[in-house]
Deep mutational scan, measured.
Amino acid sequence: YKIYPYDSLIVTNSISVKLPKDVDRTRLERHLSPEEFQEVFGMSIEEFDRLALWKRNDLKKKALLF
């Protein structure tokens, strides 16, 4: 996945969300650098992957990456 800054990946309720063209809309968190991922989620990507799907989705919603 290509890395993008968190600010360019957050999704708000506005209709005209302009995400970069090559971003996987269903896995926005994968486009964060490991350092920024840790900062946003408070855990590593590996720890995040071990969580239940509902928990990952809940965290993504709170981080505006859903």
Rank of each mutant, 00 (worst) to 15 (best):
I15S: 15
L51K: 05
N13H: 10
Y1N: 11
L28P: 02
L28H: 01
D58L: 12
L64T: 04
E35M: 11
S14A: 12
E39R: 14
L28V: 03
F41A: 00
Y1D: 08
R50T: 12
I45Q: 08
R56E: 02
F41C: 01
P5N: 05
E47F: 09
R27N: 14
L53N: 09
L9C: 02
L65H: 01
V40Y: 06
L19S: 06
P5D: 06
I15E: 15
S33W: 03
K62W: 06
Y6G: 01
E36R: 03
S44W: 06
F37K: 00
P5S: 08
F66E: 07
F66G: 07
S33E: 04
S44T: 15
W54M: 08
V17Y: 03
R50G: 12
A52R: 07
I3T: 10
K61D: 05
L53R: 09
K2T: 14
S14L: 12
L64C: 12
R56D: 01
P34V: 15
P5C: 04
S14W: 06
I10S: 04
Q38E: 10
R30P: 01
E39K: 15
I10M: 09
L19A: 07
R50V: 12
S33A: 10
D22K: 03
A63H: 09
I45G: 06
F41Q: 00
K21W: 11
V17E: 14
L19P: 07
R27G: 05
L65M: 05
Y1K: 11
E35F: 10
N57K: 07
L65K: 01
E29C: 02
E35L: 11
L28S: 02
A63Y: 07
S16C: 15
V17W: 03
D58Y: 12
K61C: 09
K2F: 07
L59G: 01
S16N: 14
E39C: 11
T12D: 11
S8N: 09
I3N: 05
K21H: 14
V17P: 13
Q38M: 13
D49P: 01
M43G: 01
N57E: 09
V11L: 13
K18F: 07
E36P: 00
L9Q: 00
L53E: 13
L19N: 05
L32S: 00
D7I: 15
Y1F: 12
E35K: 13
D7L: 15
K55I: 13
D24L: 05
D7Y: 14
V23K: 01
K62I: 09
R56F: 02
K21M: 13
S16E: 14
V17R: 14
P20A: 06
D49H: 07
E36N: 06
R30G: 03
I10R: 11
D22T: 05
E47T: 10
F48W: 07
I10A: 05
F41W: 01
P20I: 05
E35G: 09
I10C: 07
F41S: 00
R56P: 01
Y6L: 05
T12A: 11
F41V: 02
D58P: 02
F37G: 00
K2S: 11
L59I: 05
S8H: 10
L64R: 14
Q38W: 14
R25A: 15
M43E: 00
A52Y: 07
E29W: 01
I15V: 14
S8M: 15
L53V: 11
K21T: 12
W54T: 11
L59N: 02
G42I: 05
V40P: 00
E29A: 01
A52Q: 10
N57C: 09
S8E: 14
L53M: 12
D49R: 05
Q38C: 11
L51G: 02
R30A: 07
N13E: 11
D7M: 15
L65A: 01
M43Y: 04
I3K: 07
Y4P: 02
T12Y: 15
L32M: 04
P5R: 04
R50Y: 09
N57A: 08
M43D: 00
R27V: 06
F48H: 00
K61I: 10
S16V: 10
K61F: 08
S33Q: 04
F48E: 00
L9I: 05
P5V: 03
D22F: 05
K18H: 15
F37Q: 02
V11K: 06
I3H: 07
R30T: 03
S44I: 09
L28D: 00
P34T: 14
S16P: 12
S44Q: 10
G42Q: 13
L19M: 09
E29I: 01
V40Q: 06
L64V: 04
F48G: 00
R50A: 12
D7S: 15
E36H: 05
D49W: 05
P34W: 09
V17N: 15
I15P: 14
K61G: 05
L53K: 09
L28C: 02
